[in-house]
Simulated scan of single mutants.
Amino acid sequence: MRFALINNEPIEAAPGLQGNCRGCGRLVIAKCGTVRVHHWAHQTIRMCDSWWEPETEWHRSWKNNFSREWQEVFMPDVQSGEKHIADVRTEHGLVLEFQHSHIKPEERTAREKFYRNMVWVVDGTRLKRDYTRFLKGKKDFRATSKPGIFMADFPDECFPKAWLNSSVPVIFDFKGAGIEGEPEDPGDPLYCLFPYEGLFDAYIAEIPKNAFINTVQNGEWGIRVQSFMNEVNEKRKHQERLRQNPNNGISYRKFIFPRIYIRRRRF
């Protein structure tokens, strides 16, 4: 945790300090070594949030784009009593979860169901090959009529497979952790993979980092995403109706299995 309560004020960890967890109220101790970023840890090994994981400088850098009041917000489920710490929750109700380490599909799904109105921001430089693979796959993106929006037949050739089945938008940050020789720039593009159904093409948005942050801060992000996804879902419903109509002149097999007909051979 980045903040703990001292005299009811949220304070960052510093050597020698003790405080209380903002979620459970138990004693936490400042951990200020030289390997990991300074953080608060519960006096007992057990953490009050089962989804908690160690943070990196990449996490902290992203959190610093938002006010302290929005960071590390404890969100309880009144009915179940389950409680989790959202990395960022804006005043508009949008949750941002920053993910550097590998996450199991079951936990990813559980977080999406718990937070609902959320977006993932994923460190695209966790594995060295991820960025080069993305650049290679990006060459096959197809432009749409909307500026900055692209379509892809095979998103698995660009993005880690663990994120393809997400039910919420996933933002990939390929520059935030620092690429050697390429300093971070607020205008560096992020790439948003919208919720994807394998039967249809994937939609991807190229968004300047500062534009993403601004739309999250002013509340426009959720409105824009919902409007866009409504359009996408209408198109997918139309495609599904065409598929189910045997008299529309479209080959059912070619529609259902397009990849069999257009995928390039891989060696």
Results as ranks from 00 to 15, higher is better:
15 P>N: 02
13 A>K: 10
133 R>K: 14
212 F>A: 01
18 Q>E: 12
48 C>N: 11
7 N>P: 00
165 N>P: 00
8 N>W: 07
186 P>E: 08
72 E>P: 05
161 K>L: 05
42 H>E: 02
244 Q>W: 00
63 K>M: 05
193 L>H: 06
2 R>K: 12
213 I>G: 04
75 M>P: 03
150 F>D: 03
56 T>V: 04
229 M>V: 06
51 W>D: 11
76 P>H: 06
228 F>P: 02
88 V>S: 09
144 T>D: 05
177 A>S: 12
252 Y>F: 11
127 L>Y: 12
157 E>H: 09
26 R>E: 14
156 D>I: 01
61 S>F: 03
91 E>F: 06
236 R>S: 03
212 F>S: 02
154 F>T: 06
60 R>I: 09
89 R>T: 05
94 L>W: 04
55 E>Y: 07
233 N>Q: 13
221 W>A: 03
215 T>P: 01
145 S>L: 11
132 T>E: 15
260 I>D: 11
156 D>E: 14
17 L>T: 08
148 G>F: 07
86 A>I: 06
167 S>Y: 07
32 C>T: 14
265 R>T: 10
155 P>K: 13
84 H>W: 05
166 S>F: 03
137 G>D: 07
244 Q>P: 03
131 Y>I: 04
84 H>R: 12
72 E>S: 04
149 I>A: 02
163 W>M: 01
146 K>I: 12
187 G>M: 02
195 P>W: 00
257 F>H: 10
67 S>G: 13
233 N>W: 05
252 Y>S: 01
212 F>V: 01
10 P>T: 08
94 L>R: 00
136 K>S: 08
101 S>C: 07
230 N>L: 02
60 R>K: 12
18 Q>T: 06
52 W>M: 03
72 E>L: 04
225 V>F: 11
142 R>M: 14
216 V>E: 03
197 E>K: 10
159 F>W: 11
107 E>F: 13
212 F>Q: 04
111 R>Y: 05
256 I>T: 14
78 V>E: 07
209 K>E: 10
116 R>T: 12
175 K>Q: 06
51 W>T: 09
208 P>K: 11
